[in-house]
Design a protein around this nucleic acid. Structure first.
Length: 463
RNA sequence: UCCCCAGUAGCUCAGUCGGUAGAGCGGGUGACUGUUAAUCACCAUGUCCGUGGUUCGAGUCCGCGCUGGGGAGCCA
């Protein structure tokens, strides 16, 4: 097909003039006497471009002035200044080809639809304004994440998706098996004998790449993972999906303070990136999705993140002149309502809460000298609460084994993880960030199902 | 998994006291010399989520089920 110019690039032209070919899908058609206007969008930007069809210069004007929403078109014409308000430039069409027809059954009309309805047509919703903006932002952010770590010489490691370890206990595993649903080989006790399974053992989809990431940090220093993660939890909320993407950096020769420094730099970098590189889409979110979004993201990009000990956070909450639904007491985990109070009311901006009681945190977190806390951190931000969770890892073999025993975790499957503490063990730290939650935070979108192209949630794996 | 709410035209919704369905948008036809998810006129559109019940009569009341949404837990 003829070489086409992306509409986003076309509108970057410093001045009108010149002939161009563009191709995309019709968003709306407005006909008026001898002139018709078509808004054409090719996904490269939010606004698309206005095509002008004049009866005198376009063949088959009668039909072309009635093209329905969703029609795929390729058009050629001259880039001219627009005499009307609403756009600087427009394309005066000289040739038009209908590449793919549409019809009135097209489920996306030129009107506002509910997100629930659009979710039911996830194969078509990227052609809408909101989802076009969301998925452009998602793509740019993914690249920005790689850029951030690449600029700092972090090694990008692909940790396995199929795993035999459920060490973190981060959630229910999706089973991976080739055994027949009925008639799987059994042990004497009646349980399934996984030694006959494809991998010769019980396997599932990964719930985190962290443990493998730690191994690579012990070779390359600074590393990160960025890939899909799976949890078979029956969570029915706007913040959970069964399949989501996670970013997990890990740094050798580093402690909890270094970890928080990296997390702060990372979040501020991504906020600035979105504002600068996705300006048109961010303006759309600010106007249509969440009023004040740009100001909120801007303030985070500028802020120095506060740091607060868990114990101090508890004191703040106990002194709070509001009543919470959940109890506040040293030793209990913070609920969303507590997290939001801390970041929104106490601090008025992003805050790290540091050094949590060891009994509410994972086995691999480094035990502090006080004997009752571990070097864990959560980054809390206004509106959503926790956005990042991380820790300094326990690098001392004795303490790690002791904790594994205390928590009644099977040690044998972790032999390789423990080996990393046997030879050349180093203090190291890292964190995890859910990619979808980042997109929600930067776009103002409130449902995780609306920031991932084809969401997988309990009872849903369509498309 | 628990609690709450909802399901009516293609979409967004209204529907009073239980009396047999109605707006906008979208669609069709036409008008209009530059529109901005145009405007104006006319036209068409229904398994009222399913199922059982109460009733002379159910979109409306009740039971059960299904689906969706919100909140919580778990967490990222």
């Amino acid at each position: 097909m003829a070489k086409r110019t992306l509409i986003a690039d076309l509108l970057q032209q410093p001045e009108a003039g010149g002939d161009y070919t563009v191709a995309g899908w019709v968003r709306s058609t407005r006909a008026s006497g001898d002139v018709a206007f078509i808004v054409l969008n090719d996904g490269s930007n939010l606004s698309g471009i206005q095509l002008v069809l004049e009866r005198a210069t376009v063949t088959n004007f009668e039909n072309h002035s009635k093209l329905g929403t969703g029609t795929a078109l390729q058009v050629s014409g001259e880039l001219v200044p627009s005499p009307a308000a609403g756009q600087q430039l427009e394309l005066r069409v000289t040739a038009l080809t209908v590449v793919g027809e549409s019809n009135p059954d097209y489920p996306l009309q030129k009107k506002r639809h509910s997100f629930e309805y659009l979710r039911s047509i996830a194969h078509l919703r990227p052609r809408s304004n909101t989802f076009g903006a969301v998925f452009r932002l998602r793509s740019r952010l993914a690249q920005a994440i790689h850029q951030f770590f690449s600029e700092r010489n972090f090694l990008y490691v692909h940790t396995p998706i199929i795993t035999a370890s459920d060490c973190e206990g981060a959630g229910e595993l999706f089973r991976v098996t080739t055994l027949p649903p009925n008639g799987a080989p059994r042990n004497e006790g009646g349980s399934i004998d996984f030694s006959h399974d494809f991998f010769g053992q019980k396997t599932g989809l990964t719930v985190s790449g962290q443990l493998e990431g730690e191994l690579f940090a012990q070779s390359f220093g600074n590393i990160y993972t960025f890939g899909p993660t799976f949890r078979a939890e029956n969570s029915n909320t706007a913040r959970h999906a069964s399949e989501f993407w996670m970013i997990e950096p890990e740094m050798a020769f580093s402690n909890l303070a270094d970890d928080a420094d990296l997390a702060e730099e990372f979040v501020r970098y991504l906020c600035s990136f979105a504002l600068e590189q996705c300006a048109e889409d961010m303006t759309f979110f600010d106007q249509q999705i969440e009023k004040g979004l740009i100001e909120r993201v801007h303030s985070v990009a500028q802020a120095n993140f506060a740091r607060m000990e868990y114990g101090d956070a508890i004191t703040h909450l106990q002194k709070a002149p509001v009543s919470f639904n959940f109890p506040v007491e040293w030793g209990l985990d913070l609920q969303t309502e507590h997290e939001r109070y801390l970041t929104e009311q106490v601090v008025g901006g992003p805050v790290f809460v540091l050094n949590y009681p060891k009994d509410i945190k994972a086995f691999y977190m480094r035990q502090n000298d006080d004997g009752r806390t571990v070097a864990a951190m959560d980054l809390l931000v206004p509106k959503v609460g926790e956005i990042i969770g991380g820790s300094q890892r326990e690098e001392r073999l004795d303490q790690l084994e002791q904790r594994i025993n205390e928590m009644d975790i099977p040690k044998e499957p972790l032999w390789w993880y423990l080996d990393s503490r046997r030879w050349g063990s180093t203090p190291h730290a890292g964190f995890g960030l859910g990619f979808e939650r980042l997109i929600m935070y930067l776009s103002g979108m409130e449902n995780i199902r609306d920031v991932i192209p084809f969401p997988r949630t309990p009872r849903h794996a369509e498309f």
